[in-house]
């Protein structure tokens, strides 16, 4: 620790450059965005007024329209993640350099490409194919999940203890036996924990898919705000926060239990 302090050079030309770059970027960004002091100064008041209008939230609307839409978001996230997880497991194993040194060179870039396209953009392509609604969103979440989970699965498999593989092979086990006894028992708890973690992220993603018509709560928020029904928008925000917090808490505690040996 003390070494880093001793090693810090006097003068710091590097941080000077960094500061200058930041300043130029900032000025350039500001000049492009028609942001004037007046709007910034008015911001606290504007926000306070809007959040004030959120309360009290429209409970009746919440019960009738918001809850079903949030449930739909959960359904999209759950089913999409599950399908993505199921498909990502074989692909993730194939992408593991230690198990499949040849296949990995093909599968890894494939997963990276899938992962690089955000769910919303995927949904834009699925909507014309299967129509507006939750199914399009589910496909988008599922496809994106394959990309992220496949990569994370490969990471886990590549960092596990490799040595039992040889032991199972030395007992005369084939590839499936190696998978069953040397690979899966070591990695499955971590991988299932990743699936749950991905579900938490998918839920946030599915909450916004509605803005392109792919189902869930996002479309409801967009419409209530468009028609400036702030008490209804308040119901959306409050319920979404509560549900996401609750699901995060449950999922997080299950994940913790899973990876404890």
């Amino acid at each position: 620790m003390s070494a880093t302090i001793v090693a810090r050079r006097p003068g710091m030309p590097r941080s000077l450059w960094l500061g200058l770059t930041l300043l130029i970027l900032l000025v350039w960004s500001f000049s492009g965005l028609e942001i004037d002091g007046g709007r910034v100064a008015a911001l606290p008041k504007t926000m306070a007024r809007m959040f004030g209008l959120f309360f009290p939230p429209d409970v009746e609307y919440g019960r009738q329209s918001v809850v079903p839409a949030i449930l739909e978001s959960i359904q999209i996230a759950w089913f999409g993640t599950l399908v993505g997880a199921a498909l990502s497991l074989p692909l993730g194993l194939l992408a593991s350099a230690n198990l499949f040194p040849r296949a990995t060179r093909l599968v890894k870039p494939l997963l990276a490409a899938v992962r690089a396209v955000p769910e919303l953009l995927l949904a834009i392509y699925f909507v014309p194919v299967v129509g507006l609604g939750a199914f399009a969103g589910t496909l988008a979440i599922g496809l994106h999940s394959i990309g992220t989970l496949g990569k994370l699965t490969a990471d886990v498999v590549e960092s596990m203890d490799q040595r039992p593989i040889e032991a199972v092979a030395a007992s005369g086990g084939g590839a499936l036996s190696v998978l069953r006894f040397a690979v899966l028992p070591q990695v499955l708890p971590e991988i299932v924990a990743l699936w749950l973690f991905r579900f938490e992220i998918s839920l946030r993603a599915s909450a916004v898919l509605g803005v392109v018509g792919a189902g869930g709560i996002g479309g409801v928020l967009l419409n209530t705000l468009r028609y400036r029904e702030f008490a209804r928008a308040g119901a959306v925000v409050v319920l979404t926060v509560i549900v996401v917090l609750a699901i995060d808490a449950v999922s997080g505690s299950i994940r913790e239990r899973l990876v404890r040996e």
Binding site: M50, R204, A205, V211, L225, V237, T240, D248
Partner: peptide, 12 residues
């Protein structure tokens, strides 16, 4: 807990 696009909608 709020997705980034929710914030965008609120601020817009």
């Amino acid at each position: 807990t709020m997705p980034d696009l929710f914030w965008a909608m609120l601020f817009a």
